[in-house]
């Protein structure tokens, strides 16, 4: 599948050449982490569960990583719109490569960037807040979930971007879907302390699944229904892939 390599190369050159390359990809996530982590951290203090107390900055670390996964996916989707706008998307449809491989190249690049961001954020917390983040073999499992999460968000958001005709439409749909998802998730605070109605909604929120799985592996934070969340996220990822691939290969 030579299309994958070419597609990764294309994404890389585009991202490298962007004038906001450092801000978009590294500083922004760290900034989010720092502002929310420290500010909310001061207000909230530590997150206490039945068995342990976790400094807020480490609790929020996983949430911030998830936010960066989504931001990354949105950056990629915006590029897809630009491609459509400047006619490149149509031209790419004529290239002698499998169209799914173009999608896979974009996906792989997005996942790599997400992993770099996640590592940068983990190192940031590790260095600036010594002793608050324990490193163990579980970090590798955590990174595996970052990978899967990055895939899921990239694929579903790219699917939406491919479906919609205008960037305006995309922005609207994005905010309509993402805002409730964000605030009914466990990104900022544990769902346990929230109103019952939000608790119920959060059960079916893939963003909560991903965050809870991540905290389980990175912080040893117990979570209910772990295996359901894992299965749910995997199914969500597969469905997103099928949708995005079908859209990429749409021909009519």
């Amino acid at each position: 599948m030579k299309g994958i390599g070419a597609s990764i190369y294309r994404e890389y050159i585009n991202r490298r050449t962007s004038p906001r390359v450092l801000v978009e990809n590294i500083l922004n996530p760290l900034f989010t982490l720092f502002i929310f982590g420290v500010a909310l951290g001061n207000a909230i203090g530590t997150i206490k569960t039945s068995s342990m107390a976790i400094p807020y900055i480490t609790f929020f670390l996983v949430g911030a990583i998830n936010i960066s996964l989504i931001t990354n996916a949105v950056v990629a989707a915006t590029k897809t719109f630009l491609d459509k706008y400047v006619g490149l998307y149509e031209e790419m449809m004529t290239y002698p490569v499998n169209r799914t491989s173009i999608l896979l190249g974009k996906l792989i690049f997005s996942v790599i960037i997400s992993l770099i961001q996640a590592l940068a954020m983990m190192i940031f917390v590790f260095i600036l807040f010594p002793g608050k983040l324990a490193m163990s073999i579980n970090v590798l499992f955590f990174l595996l979930w970052v990978t899967i999460g990055a895939m899921a968000w990239f694929l579903i958001i790219t699917y939406i971007a491919l479906r919609l005709k205008t960037q305006d439409g995309f922005n609207t749909v994005y905010y309509l879907i993402m805002t409730p998802l964000l605030y009914t998730s466990s990104i900022y605070y544990p769902v346990d302390n929230m109103p019952t109605i939000i608790k119920y909604i959060s059960v079916i929120n893939p963003l909560t699944w991903l965050t809870d799985i991540g905290r389980y592996y990175l912080l040893n934070l117990e979570t209910t229904y772990l295996s359901y969340k894992i299965i749910g996220l995997l199914i969500f990822t597969v469905i997103s892939f099928l949708l995005a691939a079908r859209e990429m290969n749409r021909y009519n």
Partner: peptide, 18 residues
């Protein structure tokens, strides 16, 4: 089939920022 063709579309299609 697509390996047989190279296409110049009517609307410009370039990576403008590259």
């Amino acid at each position: 089939y697509r390996r047989k063709i190279a296409v110049v579309l009517q609307n410009s299609s370039l990576e403008l920022w590259l």
